[in-house]
Nucleic acid binder design. Structure first.
Length: 273
DNA sequence: AGCCAGGACAAGT
DNA sequence: ACTTGTCATGGC
């Protein structure tokens, strides 16, 4: 166990697990104790604990560090970004409320599948469906832990096979997405660098993928920080605070801004929502 | 009990 | 191009 336990240095007051894992961008992380989070990512069962300006991670060997740094977005300097966004009074409050939010770079297929499941659904139930998806079709990687099933594992299935998930009308969407990924129609690498509008268009050919889900995939799965998912909460924020549109000057990091606003509106008692 | 959920779709203006 | 009813399930 010692061989797969190590620590990584992070910026002081930067990455905050409590908000990063609990701000609605991921569905496979759970708080198991004060300051300790357990989650499954990159095919591993991980445990994360912040200790000052160090992040302690167990469950992965040292060679995994580059991938983990990318997953947790630890090598991006958020300071100048958040300072720039703070020029806006609403964003300033949102960032002050939870400055340690970081945009995870999750696995694209898992992100696509998870956010298809998320539509017209609440976060606790999304987590339940994703959990059942992994238990039923993922690989056993621990005592009671399962990896996220590959698209190729789901593509041959039919709707009845997915009945145990109790995902409702979303089952056929999951299958359509899996098949398009397996066929090569969806190329996640290309989605990271082609024009944003083109990337959205490609994703939206999948049944059950509209503008919101497409933007979530591009932001959380492809690292497109200019993607700006608009859900019911963000819609409320925009209507109240930005009736003339979201400031164009922030578009480059709109995804980051969006995530702070989403969490602020949902979780801050003083946000007015 | 009833409203709502990190929406999308199809049918209707 | 914009609006509306519907979709399956269950959290609160």
């Amino acid at each position: 166990m010692d061989s797969d336990r190590y620590i990584m240095k992070i910026d002081i007051n930067a990455f905050d697990p409590d908000v990063t894992f609990d701000c609605g961008q991921c569905f496979r992380w759970d708080k198991i104790d004060e300051g300790i989070w357990k989650g499954i990512a990159l095919g591993r069962s991980l445990e994360v604990k912040k200790d000052g300006d160090w992040l302690c991670i167990s469950g992965a060997e040292k060679a995994m560090e580059p991938k983990l740094r990318k997953y947790f977005d630890l090598d991006r300097d958020y300071k100048p970004v958040l300072e720039a966004l703070s020029a806006d009074p609403v964003l300033k409050k949102a960032i002050k409320f939870a400055p340690g939010i970081r945009i995870l770079r999750q696995e694209p297929w898992e992100t696509l599948c998870s956010f298809i499941i998320s539509q017209n659904n609440n976060i606790p139930r999304i987590k339940g469906i994703v959990s059942r998806l992994c238990e039923n079709f993922g690989d056993k990687i621990g005592e009671n832990e399962y990896s996220f099933p590959e698209a190729s594992r789901l593509a041959p299935l039919n709707e009845e096979d997915l009945a145990p998930l109790r995902s409702g009308f979303r089952a056929r969407y999951i299958l359509d997405a899996a098949r398009r990924v397996v066929s090569g129609e969806i190329d996640f690498d290309a989605l990271t660098y082609i024009p944003l509008a083109d990337a959205r268009k490609i994703l939206m050919k999948i049944k059950g993928v509209g503008p919101k889900v497409a933007d979530c995939v591009l932001l959380f799965g492809c690292g497109r920080l200019d993607a700006f998912p608009i859900d019911v909460w963000v819609k409320r924020v925009l209507a109240r605070f930005y009736p003339d549109g979201f400031p164009e000057e922030f578009a480059k990091y709109g995804g980051i801004a969006q995530q702070f606003l989403f969490h602020y509106a949902r979780c801050c008692p003083d946000s007015g929502f």
